[in-house]
Design a protein around this nucleic acid. Structure first.
Lengths: 163, 163
DNA sequence: CTAGTATGCTGAATATCATTCAGAATGAGG
DNA sequence: CCTCATTCTGAATGATATTCAGCATACTAG
């Protein structure tokens, strides 16, 4: 069965399986992938290239163990904007997204306007981030920080298969 | 200069550069990587293998464009536990982390005990997740959902280089 | 029903790349 | 100054991706 999610992109069950597998091992060899989906290597290769070209596979990345490189400290930083400063949004977002400690920035509903996922080395660097980077931002009203005590689950893989 | 973050793991500036590069392109060829860090392919290969073996590089993954596969809807679901149900924590976490729509689960400080990052297809599936999966969990007190209106930045790459 | 066309497959051939290895260079410690 | 450990390089090898010709299948139009 074909499933068209987004316009122009149809994924059959083999495509779905390929995505499911590559989301868990982005470096699996083409031959091994072919074996798992019961196709020949060239057939799988063509499908993977198509998925890359269509942007379904956005990119391949190596995931680094944060703790092993000293970025043990994860937190969520929420902030909202001053009502009369909405023309500065882009300016603020440009700055915020340029900071390497900011892994994610989401515009959200609720009490705050934005949520950041931030990785820092320790409490000192977090304090520095909040007081020297966040607070001085022109147009920011409230800032609220939530510390992550334990990362219970962390995956980048979304469920592609039909439910 | 050598930097020892975690015990037994030292990363020189070449290792750091390798990590920086592979975090942005996990499928870069060894030869190309070698060129970028000004070393021979075998030398780089040995370093990458060492980083993998030490667990600094945890894994390689393909990142899928959520919108292109119909999982447009991202949200944060916070919940806290009933005080007298703390013995059920593991039970709850086992269930929560087994659900494929839950990408992340963090134990956090603040008003709620846990924050989930959840990817669903649409409002219906979010409603289903909240009312049919979260609410029925024995021992869960409060549940609060924040919708992501726009993903402004999303990276998995942490800044390895010294600051 | 059938010719024509498009799509997607396979297996063999080729090209690219990872991986191994021997030997050379470098730096630290005695 | 010598020795050992580390890490490098370049050449050789092996594994893998990639290309291609030919074949099967399904769909379309007459």
């Amino acid at each position: 069965m074909m499933v068209a999610y987004s316009p122009e992109i149809e994924l059959d069950s083999v495509d779905q399986k390929i995505l499911q597998i590559l989301q868990n091992d982005g470096r699996l060899t083409n031959a091994e992938l072919a074996k798992q989906v019961h196709l020949s290597p060239p057939a799988v290769h063509a499908r993977v290239k198509r998925l890359e070209q269509k942007g379904v596979i956005a990119r391949y990345v190596a995931l680094v163990d944060r703790q092993k490189v000293g970025y043990d400290n994860l937190c969520f930083v929420e902030f909202s904007l001053q009502l009369h400063r909405y023309e500065q949004i882009q300016n603020i977002l440009d700055k915020v997204t340029s900071w390497p400690e900011v892994l994610e920035c989401h515009n959200v509903t609720g009490e705050y306007d934005y949520v950041l996922k931030v990785a820092v080395k320790n409490t000192q660097s977090l304090e520095h981030f909040i007081s020297k980077k966040m607070i001085p931002l022109e147009g920011v009203a409230k800032v609220h920080t939530t510390l992550v005590l334990k990362e219970v689950k962390a995956t980048t893989a979304i469920n592609i298969l039909d439910d």
